[in-house]
């Protein structure tokens, strides 16, 4: 079962496909302070990522999958997709 929805924490396991998106989005929307456990998640469908970006749950456990951990997790934890001001602050 890729999706285990508790009172405050959702545990995502394995490959989260488009079929889980609706349920996950509904849960994120309905839950006051949602937490998401991504430890055993191997892939997030873009729709699932988008729902998490929209409802901003707290990631309670980081994924072990290299791509999710290395590339996707920073997006979820970052300040959001606000473009950095180009050239405003030289490094």
């Amino acid at each position: 079962m890729p999706l285990e929805l508790g009172d405050t924490t959702a545990t995502l396991t394995g490959v989260v496909t488009v079929d889980e998106v609706e349920e996950l989005a509904a849960w994120l929307q309905a839950t006051a302070k949602p937490r998401v456990n991504l430890r055993k998640c191997n892939h997030l469908h873009t729709g699932a990522l988008q729902a998490m970006l929209r409802f901003r749950p707290k990631v309670s456990a980081a994924p072990t999958d290299a791509f999710l951990a290395g590339q996707v997790l920073p997006l979820l934890e970052g300040s959001g997709g606000e473009p950095t001001r180009q050239g405003s602050e030289p490094p």
Binding site: V21, E22, L24, A25, Q29, T46, G47, L49, Q50, A51, L53, R54, F55, L75, G78, G80, G81, E82
Partner: peptide, 20 residues
């Protein structure tokens, strides 16, 4: 990531429309 300039209201959120 390129997020939408403004996210729709929770009630209007369409989880099947790709916005990112």
């Amino acid at each position: 990531l390129i997020e939408p300039v403004e996210w729709p209201e929770a009630a209007d959120y369409d989880e099947y429309a790709c916005m990112v």
